[in-house]
Amino acid sequence: MPFNRLHVPQALAIETCHAINACLHASLVATCGVNPDDDFCLISRHPPGEMICHPTFLGRRDPGSTVIIEITLLAGRSDAQKEALYKDVRSRLAEIGFDPANSIVFLTENKPIDWSFSEAGSVKSVLGL
């Protein structure tokens, strides 16, 4: 159950933001076994100057066009799954015409106790984990 957060330049079209999240979600389903219904995303827009992205750190990018893709998900994916996710996301970004070089992706993992979707409590208690 991932929660995606897209940090994007303010001028990026909302349709592009939705397309980027669709790419990300499809990649999570394909590479990390995420349930197709677990699609949650928050888009955070930043005006010029509020996103600082080095133009050449571990690859070339256009700092003014870079998106930062933040994924929080349950722990348990292998390093191979994570590498496959990164590769698949970038491949899908290229397919929609977004330069994958202008993407930074990172994961934060947690446990079922760290999620709650209703008054029933944590995912851990609801699912009896």
Rank of each mutant, 00 (worst) to 15 (best):
V34R: 09
Q10Y: 14
D37L: 15
L28I: 07
L6Y: 11
H25M: 05
T31F: 05
P36A: 09
I20S: 01
A11L: 07
C17V: 04
N35F: 03
A13I: 06
A19H: 07
L12T: 09
I20H: 01
C32S: 00
L6P: 02
L12P: 07
N35G: 00
D37A: 15
E15C: 04
I14H: 09
P36M: 05
T16W: 09
H7Y: 11
V8F: 11
C23D: 09
H7F: 14
A13P: 14
T16H: 10
P36D: 07
A22D: 14
N35H: 10
V34L: 11
V8G: 07
T16Y: 08
L28M: 12
R5Y: 11
A13F: 00
L24T: 10
V8I: 15
R5G: 09
A11N: 05
A13R: 12
A22W: 04
P36N: 04
L24P: 00
V34W: 01
A26L: 08
Q10L: 15
L12G: 08
L12I: 08
H7E: 11
I20Q: 03
C32E: 02
H18I: 11
C17G: 01
V29C: 10
H18G: 05
S27D: 04
V8M: 10
C17K: 00
H25N: 08
Q10G: 07
H25A: 06
A30V: 07
R5H: 10
V29E: 02
V8E: 09
T16S: 12
S27C: 08
A11P: 02
H7R: 13
L6V: 13
V34P: 02
V34M: 14
P36I: 07
P9A: 13
A22G: 07
C23S: 15
T16R: 15
P36Q: 10
N21G: 01
L24F: 01
G33L: 04
N21W: 05
Q10S: 13
Q10W: 14
A13M: 06
C32Q: 00
T31M: 06
N21H: 12
C32H: 00
P9Y: 10
